[in-house]
């Protein structure tokens, strides 16, 4: 059988996966929304959460779509489409595909023509990421139980612990922004973008808290993010 990484069969598999993901997300969304109403949370706030999360998601989602396009050059569209719609990210899928292809002595610079190489890549991508999904049902109660017992002992420290975890994540990503500064001025671009985004957020903070522009609160993060991305398109040609 001739192998085509863009065959209708593979698109069918992709559509099946997409429907599964949408069904699960919708199930959890409706359940949480209903429960929120039941315990007397403000319906308007719940709806605003949906709108603001949706708007925030647009820019990162387009960047994920770019990852699908990058991978599609050698894997066809359906497999990257599947892989980036479920757990996984371009930073994982690309090394996984490269590692599987090189184990079979194939280069990933052109479209895969062998179904064996293709299925090997699909297996490596799947098995490489599966543990994080499997570990959730195995560990979640233990992790939450540990947190509850810390909170019961000392509630202030329990809260501080979660804040510290957030801070750990944020500091790792903010630190990463500095990784190219030894490459000269061009390496500073991410830092300028980060600072611009931070200044925009500070301005939004003033508008929300001092000038009471309440609607802005829900949209401040996407506005700052897209503003800073636009800033990157202006300063990059000027610097590079």
């Amino acid at each position: 059988m001739n192998f085509n990484p863009n065959s209708s069969f593979l698109y069918l598999v992709a559509v099946f996966i997409i429907i599964f993901i949408l069904a699960q997300s919708l199930f959890f969304l409706l359940r949480a929304y209903k429960r929120g109403k039941e315990i007397g949370m403000d319906v308007k706030k719940l709806r605003n959460t949906i709108t603001s999360s949706a708007i925030f998601t647009v820019a990162p989602a387009v960047s994920i779509l770019l990852g699908v396009l990058t991978l599609s050059k050698f894997l066809g569209l359906p497999l990257p489409w599947i892989r980036l719609s479920v757990i996984g990210a371009i930073t994982y899928e690309l090394p996984a595909a490269t590692s599987a292809a090189s184990a079979l002595g194939v280069s990933v610079s052109e479209t895969i023509e062998s179904p064996v190489v293709y299925s090997a890549i699909a297996w490596v991508m799947t098995l490489g990421i599966l543990p994080s999904t499997i570990l959730v049902p195995l560990l979640i109660k233990r992790i939450q139980g540990g947190l509850v017992s810390i909170k019961n002992k000392d509630s202030k420290w329990g809260e501080l612990l979660i804040t510290a975890m957030f801070m750990g994540m944020i500091s790792a990503f903010m630190g990463m922004v500095f990784s190219n500064i030894r490459k000269g001025l061009a390496g500073w671009i991410p830092i300028f973008v980060m600072l611009f985004s931070a200044v925009l957020m500070a301005v939004c903070g003033i508008l929300i808290k001092v000038l009471k522009v309440k609607w802005l609160q829900d949209y401040a993060l996407p506005i700052c993010m897209i503003g800073a991305m636009a800033f990157a398109t202006i300063i990059t040609p000027a610097i590079v």
Binding site: L160, I170, A232
Partner: peptide, 26 residues
């Protein structure tokens, strides 16, 4: 350049909120 800088654009804004609240910790 916009998509190359998506993480700095995200963590700059998110960072300032958390750092301003807990700068001693940050």
């Amino acid at each position: 350049p916009a998509f190359d800088n998506i993480l700095p654009a995200l963590f700059g804004a998110l960072g300032v909120v958390y750092i301003s609240k807990n700068w001693k910790l940050a």
